[in-house]
């Protein structure tokens, strides 16, 4: 992995998820999968984070929260949508209170499908995101724009 030399930190937000993906995201941080060995830490502060991990689908209530977190994150950053609900709404897409995947609200760089997404998949998705983050970082050095 010739990615970033620095440790990327993630912030995790549960947007109307069923918890299944949330606990799998947390499982990535604990001994068996242990992404901390790559220097990845789950932080609660959006201003410390490089990677925004969203589980679950968007609804009216959490729209503002997601936007808020996203806007507070320093650029360049990447967004990873974990689980089928974050991709498209999943089994809940027909519910009255679900407006769809996270992609409707903020630009998502990597989608991790699955119900619930397995830790291996999530780690794979995060590693892909690191590549994108690195590219964005290099582009920004060249004076490009962060999007």
């Amino acid at each position: 992995m010739s990615y970033l030399t620095k440790s990327p930190w993630i912030i995790h937000y549960d947007a109307s998820s069923c918890n299944g993906c949330d606990i799998e995201v947390l499982a990535c941080l604990t001994p068996l999968y242990d992404v901390e060995r790559f220097g990845i830490i789950n932080t609660g502060n959006p201003k410390h984070a490089d990677i925004f991990v969203v589980t679950g689908s968007v609804n009216e209530q959490n729209k503002e929260v997601i936007k808020n977190i996203y806007n507070q994150m320093p650029k360049p950053n990447v967004v990873v949508g974990v689980g089928i609900c974050a991709c498209s709404g999943g089994v809940f897409r027909e519910c009255y209170n679900v407006s769809g995947g996270v992609g409707e609200l903020i630009p998502v760089d990597v989608y991790v499908p699955g119900c619930a997404a397995r830790p291996e998949q999530i780690i794979d998705g995060i590693v892909k995101a690191l590549g994108i983050l690195d590219k964005k970082y290099k582009d920004s050095k060249k004076g490009g724009d962060f999007k």
Binding site: N59, E60, Q61, Y96, N97, S99
Partner: peptide, 8 residues
């Protein structure tokens, strides 16, 4: 419970 549709 604030919902998109009132009294769904």
């Amino acid at each position: 419970i604030r919902t998109t549709v009132k009294a769904p």
